[in-house]
Design a protein around this nucleic acid. Structure first.
Lengths: 97, 97
DNA sequence: ACTATATTTGCATATTTGTGCAAATATATC
DNA sequence: GATATATTTGCACAAATATGCAAATATAGT
């Protein structure tokens, strides 16, 4: 694992490692259909601008993807991608040299 | 997942989501035998006090365990425990409701 | 064009966090 | 007890971060 990869992984973990952002992720976990930001406001104790910023972080780290549908922007999880990266780390940690 | 569990998971991810701490974890990954803090100083660009603080965070979150051996304190990873928690999150994220 | 709704952004601010240095503590050896 | 080595802690500080509010922007419907 080189420095760039380590930094990217650290950034992913940092994105997930904030309580309100993790709450957003959980909320999206439980949705079959994508949700817009207004809807996601209800599940965490920050206002719309805060949710917007959190979603931006999650988006930059590839945790969520977004698609504009008219006035709304619908967010959904990159489920397999994120799960894959977490399992890769789990594998690294678990493997004794 | 209740609030307390979510907070604990966020804390774990936050602990892992800092570059120098993740570097320490990688270093310990590659060790068959435990290492002391002085030795771990070499793999990350912080001084002994910084490494001590990082190891304290990792220890509080259950990422590493420590055992004093004379003057030194030897650190090693809680491999299976950490891997398990990461995989649990991966499973939650990947499972469509 | 006007209005309503959804999202982003600029600004200010309080809090957290990572860091180094020096001092304190712990343990071993002489 | 004195000295050496390993680790922790108090202090100060700079940088990052999360947050709310108000204004700006985007889009849709009338």
């Amino acid at each position: 694992m080189n420095q760039k990869e380590a930094q990217e992984l650290a950034d992913l973990l940092k994105a997930l490692g904030e309580y309100n952002r993790l709450s957003l992720v959980y909320e999206l976990c439980q949705c079959k259909a994508p949700k817009n930001a207004m809807c996601l406001c209800d599940c965490c104790s920050v206002d719309a601008s805060g949710v917007s910023r959190h979603l931006k972080v999650l988006s930059q780290e590839g945790v969520v993807k977004s698609e504009r549908k008219g006035r709304e922007i619908q967010y959904s999880l990159n489920r397999t991608e994120v799960a894959k990266r977490l399992r890769q780390l789990a594998d690294i940690i678990e493997t004794t040299p």
